[in-house]
Design a protein around this nucleic acid. Structure first.
Length: 259
DNA sequence: ATGTCGCATTCCATGCGA
């Protein structure tokens, strides 16, 4: 089973890219983030016509997550529990068939948190704590579970071309990295780091200042695996070439194989 | 640090979020 995650930075601007990637990569499921539209404006028909099932959780103007899958997504949850007043569309979860069993999959768009001296940063940290609480509950099911998405977390210095430039950024501040480690310590395996210790593996290059041309990237798109999923982990890859496509998203897809 | 996008509105220019 192949699972991918991709922050597309507007599904309406990136529809042809998504269709091309689906055709090229042939995933069983693709988690999307930053749809930047309400469900009614999601280009559902075009993707369904290509043979896919579409589950969306959109929001006007920004945020928004979706899961595109070959099989219908079941037991769907929209929104991260733990704060009824939170209306931001950043979490979508469901269950897909996998062999004789199932895999539970979530598409996550974790808050950016910048600038850190505003209410945006405590919102990010609180969101991460809510995710940890929910994830702990999911782990109790002892089933294959994949939490995939744009975490807006640079886990370590080797995950940035120029870590010093990110020292005061909400993506790299110590409380952010500590919260990410705490989430993992519940029992998750971070897919890419289960397969390589290499530096220089990035999933995001800013539109500004020629970041792509200079390979000035960061690794912020991650897949966290429950023990039952980690036991089945095969290859992990970053579809870096997608960043070179015309009018590309600033993020590229990350893929895993589950045997 | 800021050489770019995409969205929305006060709507063809600007603010916001990233």
């Amino acid at each position: 089973m192949r699972i991918a995650t991709w922050n597309v930075n507007s599904i309406r601007q990136r529809l042809t890219h998504v269709l091309a990637f689906l055709k090229e990569a042939e995933p069983d499921a693709l988690c999307l983030q930053e749809l930047k539209c309400v469900d009614a404006d999601f280009p559902r028909a075009e993707i369904e016509e290509a043979g896919w099932q579409v589950t969306t959780h959109g929001q006007k103007g920004f945020n928004g997550v979706a899961i595109i899958s070959r099989s219908a997504l079941e037991d769907v949850r929209r929104g991260l529990p733990g704060d009824e007043s939170d209306e931001q569309a950043r979490y979508l979860e469901g269950v897909l068939p996998h062999g004789d069993g199932v895999v539970r999959l979530a598409s996550i768009y974790l808050p950016n948190g910048n600038p850190p001296n505003t209410e945006k940063y405590p919102y990010k940290l609180a969101w991460m704590e809510r995710l940890a609480v929910h994830a702990k509950g999911l782990l109790a099911h002892e089933e294959p579970l994949v939490l995939a998405g744009d975490y807006n977390v640079i886990p370590e210095p080797r995950d940035a071309r120029d870590p010093a430039a990110w020292a005061g950024d909400a993506l790299f501040l110590p409380p952010t990295r500590t919260a990410f480690r705490k989430l993992q310590s519940l029992g998750f395996t971070e897919a890419l780091r289960a397969t390589t210790d290499a530096a220089g593996l990035y999933t995001f290059w800013d539109y500004q200042a020629g970041a792509w041309q200079r390979n000035n990237g960061i690794r912020i798109d991650h897949l966290l695996l429950s023990p039952q999923a980690a036991d089945r982990l095969g290859a992990v890859s970053i579809a870096k070439h997608v960043r070179g496509w015309d009018k590309a998203s600033d993020h590229v897809p990350v893929l895993i194989e589950l045997n």
